[in-house]
Design a protein around this nucleic acid. Sequence first.
DNA 1: CGCCCCGTTGAGGGAGCTCAAAACGAGTGG
DNA 2: CCACTCGTTTTGAGCTCCCTCAACGGGGCG
Lengths: 235, 235
Amino acid sequence: MASSLAVHSNGHASCDGVVPGRAPARDDLSALLGIGVTVTAEPGQTVVVEDDPIDHYYRVVSGTVRLYQSIADGRRQVIDFLSEGDCFGLTGVARHPCSVEAMSRITMIRYARRTVEAAIEADPSLARRLFKLACVELQRARQQMLLLGRKTADERMASFLLRLAEPDGADQVVTLTMSRLDIADHLGLTIETVSRTLSRFRRDGLIDLPNRQQILLRRVGHLKALAEGELAGAA
Amino acid sequence: MASSLAVHSNGHASCDGVVPGRAPARDDLSALLGIGVTVTAEPGQTVVVEDDPIDHYYRVVSGTVRLYQSIADGRRQVIDFLSEGDCFGLTGVARHPCSVEAMSRITMIRYARRTVEAAIEADPSLARRLFKLACVELQRARQQMLLLGRKTADERMASFLLRLAEPDGADQVVTLTMSRLDIADHLGLTIETVSRTLSRFRRDGLIDLPNRQQILLRRVGHLKALAEGELAGAA
DNA sequence: CGCCCCGTTGAGGGAGCTCAAAACGAGTGG
DNA sequence: CCACTCGTTTTGAGCTCCCTCAACGGGGCG
């Protein structure tokens, strides 16, 4: 299942602890690490396989990737979606906790694990920043645990849409970079439930669906109430 | 809902980023931080409230606590159970991502946030260790996401039992420090489903239930297969 | 044009939830 | 030692939300 990877230098690809760094800390590492190896991959290609030993650290330059875990019969949990500026493979554990797959044609910069460790050695403040990044990721993961463990399909969908929208505005347009299947596997639902829920949101005037990639949030307040579970017994 | 806390010095209590450190790194911090303030709490008392600003770092000395998140109508997701040697409140974010509640009479050592930050300043290697701790936590959180998003009730229960057992042996005795309700809220199930699942496991010879607090694992291999989702279509 | 993939919609079923009651265990007081 | 209470756990019966299975629709591409 692990596919080859279009790498500019050599064909090997592997990474690590998977602490995707979000925007706030984007530049920190790249400045310290200097030049890495540019790597590209095609949609569907596997960059990293779960449980592989960790050899590299990656930073996404363009395109989108998904982090996921899976079990025996193919069930899959999409942990997160990463895009430009996000990182993964920062190590704290020996083996990859997730597989990483390209969702589009992607470009990444790859650094050897030793390079990163040397940089940490050279600049101790780097470790602190990595720690903060990891804490933010942890917070995200825990919010997702609440979503997966205790929210209804409607609440999951609303939470997901609002997270994609991020900067709060009145009429938000959300552009989906992932398929319905990816969304389903991220929210612990089936593709049909995702589709049905979106359709019902549209009928109820919560959103518009101009096309398959875009969603217009019409009643953000209502969606927020839904996401927070405040409309528990409502139609 | 936030209750007072029996604190030896003053009555204030609050903490932070919640990176519970597991056994491997237990001693690291305490050695560096020196003496903290001893704090005790009674069963059911709230030590930290979600979204509170983070002021302290805690280390559990005795007893058990639960970390959880909750939403409007009282639904609750138990993130983790912490016991002797585990830590929480290591900061990387400004506000508590979880509430923390005592499950038994507990003793903790509390350090001011500044103390911890000064220690990090003094010994840069500390940040690296914190980072690794956070990565381990992240890995746990992600495994739980897979469990919550994609596993059946049986698989969740089996996974949970095996995680409590940890050091693999033939006939493992697991002692539960938490109620059925806590288990349910950790596994994203109801108390009834937890109870029914355990009863069925007993009928099927997978476990014994000598009393309400103890579980004897009889067929560990079978439980493992269940936990990994390898018995997807079996009775 | 025709194929294929993805998304949508429909009908029916089942795993787990809800509501309800009984069983159990621990603590308390007579 | 027993009677009583109270909280937790177990068990039962019915229902619901979401899943499964299946068919249809539409856009992209050869």
